[in-house]
Structure formats: C-alpha cells, structure tokens
Design a protein around this nucleic acid. Structure first.
Ligand SMILES: [Mn+2]
Ligand SMILES: [Mn+2]
Ligand SMILES: [Zn+2]
Ligand SMILES: [Zn+2]
Lengths: 141, 141
DNA sequence: TATCTAATTAGTTGTTATTCCTATTACTGC
DNA sequence: GCAGTAATAGGAATAACAACTAATTAGATA
C-alpha cells in the first residue's frame, strides 16, 4: 500500500479507496482478470464502484508500473499485477492464464537482444503461448 | 494459388476472386496489414468488395493455416501471410510491424518447450517486442 | 480542525472494430 | 440449363472501451 501511495504521489495522483481496492485485488490474485471481472468481484464490497473507474485505475496502475495490460486474442484485455516481463500460457478453451516462470526468461531476453540488434529501442514484450491446458485436455476426451 | 485452392477444397470451400485477391495481397506484402487496410488497398481493383468479405476471408485463411491473425496492443488486429511461428517487432509510434527472423527462432521454441513441460498442448504463440523503430527514434530527436 | 481546490468518481453517452443478419449472386454437379 | 449450396455485399447490431460532465472527495494549507 505504501508502494502504491508513493508511486501515485510521484505522478501527482491521489490514493483513493477504489484505487487501493483494485491494486490489492490484482496483487492478491493469480488469475489475470479482465476489467469487467475485477468490477464484478469488487462490486459486492464497493457497491458504488463504476466500471469506468476500473478502466481508469487499471490504466493508471499500468502507467506507474504496478500492473500491466495483456492484449490477448479474446476481445477483452486481461490485467496482471506483476508488471515484470514474463511469459504467459493461455488456454484457448477455458481462457485461463498462467505465468511461465524462470526458465523461459533467457529465451525472452534473447529475443529482445535480436530486436536491439536491429536498432530497435525495446520498451516491453508480450510473450504468449496459446494452447490447451491439462484440465481441458482431460475434459476434451 | 494451387496451394490455396487445395486447402480450400479440403475444407469444402470455394476459391473465389475475393479470396484469391486477399491471399495474394497478404502473400506479397511484408507490412502485416489490418483488415481495413487490405480492404482499402484492394477496393480500387475490386470495387464491389466488401469489408465484411475481407474479415470472413481472413478468418478462413487463418483456419486453413495460410495466414495468421496478430492481436496487438492497438485496437485493430493485423494479419500475416506467414503463418509459421515467428517473433514480431512492433513500433509503438508508427505502428509498423517487422519480423524477427533467424536467430530468435530457437528462443521461441524454447518457450514452447517450457509450456509443454507444464502439460500444455501448444497450438501457437505470439511473441511481440514493442518499442521504437530506428526511423521514429531519429524523428523523435 | 475547517477550508479550499484540483483530482477523482459515477453515470452516461460516444466511438469503432468486429460480428451478425439477410437478400442477392455465383459456383458446381447433375 | 437447373437445383442446391456457399459466398458476397450492404447494412444493422454488438461490445469493449474512451470521452464527457456534474457531483464528490483527498489531502494540502492555514
Ligand atoms: Mn502474469
Ligand atoms: Mn510476420
Ligand atoms: Zn483450459
Ligand atoms: Zn516507428
């Protein structure tokens, strides 16, 4: 929470209950939710919350580096409270998203290096593997 | 063209002038255009072409493996006549897209391997590096 | 602590890429 | 040529998200 307050202050922004709730929700989940999902999950505790505020807050969190937007194949973007560069595993059937940790990082760095070799100034990357998760493979039998 | 005809037949679909035009256009460009751009570029030669047909055709080409849809950060999807797994370089300023070829491929495969290690059945991947291209860096001075 | 003011919010309306719908057109096999 | 089916064009619908605005609030200041 202090991290959030500090990052907001640097930007000349205020810490509101809505921003705190969305920040903590993202921090505490591994599910990479959509804006709509976050809205639905917080609505019970914050009945006056508006979807618009969720969108605005997610944008702010993205800008101050405390979250990232994941543009995926499905229509709605998903959000990640972990803003560090890491690869994602996305199930085409259940649309759940998992992190690929550790061992994929050197590969991602290698790709960045290739980009820099072409004179690109790299800002961020999106590495997403689409497929079918073990659960859905089992169901699909 | 025979490749297209054959792939369409297998799917029980017909080879129409619109499909051929879109297929060839994608095959002959390196620009990873959007549906709207393709529409604009073919409209002169095929005045009756509709945007809807462009969308439908791109979906068909994707399904039969002769093109792929690239979901990118900007609102409109971009399309690639090269359906093999390869990484992309995307300029955040001019929105142009380039392939990262050669040396980056093993890294892309390595990420797939990590996904498989987790029990995932990999279908495809999207590896995108966002940044600023040399042209835009020069302009930005 | 009370006051002040710019930032933020909720609610609403606007935008736009993409999909849906349907009447017409065009292949394809007979 | 004709019947049957698939594809197209054009327009309407959808849905995620952005823009707008009046009312509220965080938090700096005295
Ligand atoms: Mn993640
Ligand atoms: Mn490409
Ligand atoms: Zn699944
Ligand atoms: Zn550029």
């Amino acid at each position: 929470m202090e991290k959030l307050r500090e990052a907001l202050r640097e930007r000349g922004s205020r810490l509101t209950p809505q921003r705190l709730a969305i920040y903590e929700h993202l921090r505490d989940t591994k599910s990479h939710p959509s804006a709509e999902t976050i809205y639905g999950e917080l609505k019970a505790r914050y009945p006056s919350l508006s979807l618009n505020t969720v969108y605005q807050t997610l944008q702010v969190l993205d800008e101050i580096g405390l979250a990232q937007k994941l543009p995926v194949e499905s229509r709605e973007a998903r959000y990640d409270g972990n803003a560090t560069g890491h690869a994602h595993l996305i199930c085409l059937e259940c649309e759940r998203i998992w992190d690929i940790d550790g061992e994929a990082l050197p590969a991602v760095s290698e790709i960045d290096r290739q980009a820099e070799k072409k004179g690109f100034k790299v800002v961020r990357n999106q590495v997403q593997v689409y497929g079918v998760c073990p659960d859905c493979q089992a169901k699909g039998r």
